[in-house]
Design a protein around this nucleic acid. Structure first.
Length: 522
RNA sequence: GGCCCCGUCGUCUAGCCAGGUCUAGGACACCAGGUUUUCAUCCUGGUAACUCGGGUUCAAAUCCCGACGGGGUCACCA
């Protein structure tokens, strides 16, 4: 998909860096995967190398194509471009078979007829005896007669790698040297009974064939790496440099999982699992990228808000942290706001447009000119695009809904002082010329001074009339954005309603039971 | 449970490898004050951490050992 123009890696020797992101097609881009992809991408860009994609679909009966498309979409949203067509493992069976052949011919792999049920029984037994069940060569040697018998029974063998009896050390760029003792290494399955390679087999072959020089992946794979090294040795394939990343955790230290992926958990501060949900919740991709980059890595000089180019320039595996990181949504919110504040107006409008498309926010009805008028008013006030949409709704409403609490506090309190003031300044608005924020503010300040009032005494009643509540952007900017006619109409409506606020409440109240105990406050 | 990894403010982290300059720095959040027409922004200040116990050393957040805590992994899933 729209491969980016390649970096300056074409001219160099054969040592150009190649990284890859290799998700299994789950149907969405996992936020942890996004960070892995980001680090791989940053490293490739920093080194002038290439960043590749591979879909690990050696298992699935699910819809690979659709599921992979969702992942591509997530990567595109984050603007993490890749440098060649993605590789699909399910289309490479011939290649894997070739390597299976080699292994068998070299005596490095053998058929195993033990069934999953039998294995499970052995494992259960081992657990009971508080032993490890580490599959060595137990069922490697069978006679031809036995083999024939198994086949006649309909058993489909798997292929296992004959592990050499020696410890294996991973030289990891993040965790250093990690050694696994020989006794811990088992003869793992490399070909499933359906003929497909296991993850271990496919990953080693594909990384080698794709020329991957640096494997950047989650720490959950650190324990698999000795297997991969053993396979590389057996196959005579090249060994990439490994860099394992610490795990991304929930605020409570638990692992981020799809099971928490719902609004209830979000309200408890759990981060969305799917990158698409960050988009839907009004985060800017550059903010997410910046935030993710800093979860487990830092430039070492205290910088936090960094452009993509700055991230690329500063990135390196040496400063990747070794401990797991908890996802702190509040900091993402802050960072997102920084990006909203820093976005050029036209970019912000475009982002709002994209965000609002297809939603039922009142703001979705706004045209670009209206959004452009509002953007400067909300860039200081919205941490996410969703907050913008939620708090700016009154601009687009046909009629404002007056918040009773606001009416009572601002308009009716003190014998209707606010209401009286609202009536008095109505004409100031009606006659404002030009109808612009600065001159209007001047006029109002003069008005207030002559009466010995603070501006707030005047601004709040207007705000309630215009927005329905006590919170809005600066009132004169708000009036201008809404327009003179609409503003006056809202003020008149508010005056009317407030004047009769306590008239005939019986009609309303009679039909309702008296306040139940435990009525909720604001 | 076995094996592996990790352990500095509530959170993300700097510092650790090359021990003193660390009365441990920054950021988010929080608290207080200031600016202000509301909210917010912005500015100033503040609370807050080296998991614990041994050892090495003149000196340890930094080196070593142990305990405890957290995480990962133990599939014919990736």
């Amino acid at each position: 998909m729209d491969p980016e123009r390649q970096g300056n890696c074409m001219d160099s020797s054969g040592s150009a860096v190649v990284t890859r992101f290799a998700p299994s097609p789950t149907g969405y881009l996992h936020v942890g995967g996004a960070r892995t992809a980001l680090y791989s991408w940053l490293f490739a860009r920093k080194q002038g190398g290439r960043f590749l994609l591979r879909i690990e679909d050696t298992d699935q009966k699910r819809n690979t194509e659709e599921a992979a498309a969702a992942i591509f979409e997530g990567l595109r949203w984050l603007d993490l471009g890749w440098d060649a067509e993605p590789v699909y493992q399910s289309q490479r069976l011939d290649i894997y078979n070739e390597y299976f052949r080699k292994l068998i011919d070299a005596g490095r792999a053998y058929e195993c007829f033990v069934t999953p049920a039998e294995l499970e029984a052995y494992r259960a037994q081992a657990r009971e005896q508080k032993r490890d069940f580490i599959y060595k060569r137990e069922w490697a040697r069978i006679t031809d007669a036995q083999r024939q018998k198994f086949i006649d029974e309909g058993r489909q063998p798997v292929l296992r790698l004959a592990m050499p009896e020696q410890a294996i050390t991973v030289d990891d760029r993040v965790f250093g040297q990690v050694t696994t003792a020989a006794e811990q290494l088992e003869d793992f399955v490399i070909r499933k009974s359906d003929g497909f390679p296991t993850y271990h087999m496919a990953v080693v072959i594909d990384d080698a064939l794709m020329g991957v020089t640096h494997v950047i992946r989650g720490q959950e794979h650190l324990g698999n790496t000795p297997k991969h090294i053993a396979l590389q040795d057996a196959l005579g394939l090249s060994r990439p440099t490994y860099a394992h990343l610490p795990i991304l955790l929930n605020p409570d230290g638990s692992k981020i999982s799809k099971r928490q992926d719902n609004p209830e958990m979000w309200s408890k501060g759990f981060p969305p699992v799917r990158v698409g949900d960050y988009q839907r919740r009004g985060y800017l991709p550059e903010a997410l990228v910046n935030f993710l980059a800093l979860l487990g890595w830092n430039p070492g000089d205290g910088r936090e808000l960094m452009t993509r180019d700055e991230l690329i320039a500063a990135f390196g595996p040496d400063r990747i942290v070794q401990s797991n990181a908890r996802f702190n949504l509040e900091k993402l919110d802050w960072m997102n706001q920084q990006y909203i504040q820093g976005s050029p107006p036209d970019v912000l409008v475009r982002r709002l447009r994209e965000f609002l498309a297809g939603t039922d926010y009142a703001a979705a009805r706004a045209d670009d000119a209206q959004l452009a008028a509002l953007a400067p008013l909300y860039r200081q006030r919205a941490r996410t695009l969703a907050e913008f949409a939620e708090t700016s709704g009154f601009f687009f409403a046909d009629a404002v809904e007056l918040d009773p609490k606001a009416v009572e506090k601002v308009l009716l309190a003190d014998d209707g002082a606010g209401l009286a003031e609202l009536k008095r300044v109505r004409d100031l608005i009606a006659s404002a010329d030009p109808f612009e924020a600065v001159p209007m503010e001047e006029a109002f300040k003069a008005h207030c001074e002559s009466l010995g009032l603070k501006l707030g005494k005047v601004a709040q009643p207007i705000r309630v009339a215009i927005s329905g509540g006590t919170v809005s952007p600066p009132i004169f900017d708000t009036l201008v954005a809404i327009g003179r006619e609409k503003s006056l109409a809202r003020i008149d409506a508010a005056i009317e309603k407030a004047t009769h606020w306590n008239d005939a409440p019986a009609a309303k109240d009679a039909s309702l039971p008296q306040n139940a105990p435990g009525d909720v406050g604001p």
